[in-house]
Design a protein around this nucleic acid. Structure first.
Lengths: 142, 142
DNA sequence: GTCTGTGCAAAAAGTTTGCAGCCGA
DNA sequence: TCGGCTGCAAACTTTTTGCACAGAC
């Protein structure tokens, strides 16, 4: 566990925004200005292998990382691509359901809800650009 | 609906292997040797927008495409990255569950099971490389 | 003739890797 | 001292885009 690795982990644990490698690179550079993007990628890979963090593969063109190693679901905003934790329990009975009907050895599952976040819902209703009840999305749609 | 687009759709509907853009490019080129990869990408995007096919974003570094536009789940082999349809019904009550506890406007969800396919299970038990009960996986682990 | 879609090629975006040197046990 | 880890840079993979032209109406 090197300095770089532990700061990377700390930054990732500190936020709940599921940053991409690039975003994390920017975050970590505030504390380690000379860290390289290659090191970020290498350590994210190692930390994911250790089970200290989670890789989120679904959606978008790029991988996200999650400082919460517990199994949980996500909700993705289809408009701004924001990703938040889903406040529902993991349903392990889904694994048993599918075990009964497949020859695969089932390890687990990942579930992602798709929807529109409060900010993007509001933005949609107000094409004139008037301010709504929620702040505009941080990340513009790609 | 151009020639290229309909052949692309036809090839994708013909298989159940959820090919990537590159694989589809190879498949289509057997019938249209002069088609370009750019056209493949452009038309996959258009067909997905029309709802004629589905984009599968999750896992791996690359996007897959699914000729079956019906909502359904998948199982991914974590060893060889093969992706097959999951023989279980879509559970729409999951959407209602999360609607009760979020401000997101929920559109749907995608669920992917992770496991080891029959071929890779066998391969795992026989490190000496003896033949097993199942054929070896078509796609080697990346 | 117009206008969309195509082929080609270059560029962009994201990720991985080779290498020489550094740092901590 | 030794071995793993880093920074840097180049390479690689996948996807997107600009442009001129071809084909369908």
């Amino acid at each position: 566990m090197t300095t770089q690795r532990s700061i990377l982990l700390d930054e990732l644990r500190r936020v709940d925004s599921h940053p991409s490698a690039d975003e994390l690179y920017a975050m970590v550079r505030r504390r380690l200005p000379r860290i390289s993007l290659g090191t970020v990628y290498r350590n994210l890979e190692i930390l994911a292998g250790l089970g200290a963090i989670r890789r989120i593969d679904s959606g978008g063109g790029l991988k996200r990382f999650d400082g919460n190693p517990e199994e949980h679901y996500h909700i993705r905003c289809v408009a701004c691509d924001r990703l938040v934790d889903a406040p529902v329990a993991v349903d392990r009975s889904l694994n048993d359901q599918i075990r009964r009907v497949t020859d695969f050895e089932i390890i687990g599952h990942q579930l992602e809800f798709l929807g529109r976040c409060p900010g993007c819902r509001t933005a949609m209703m107000e094409p004139a650009g008037l301010p709504g009840d929620f702040p505009p999305p941080a990340i513009p749609a790609p």
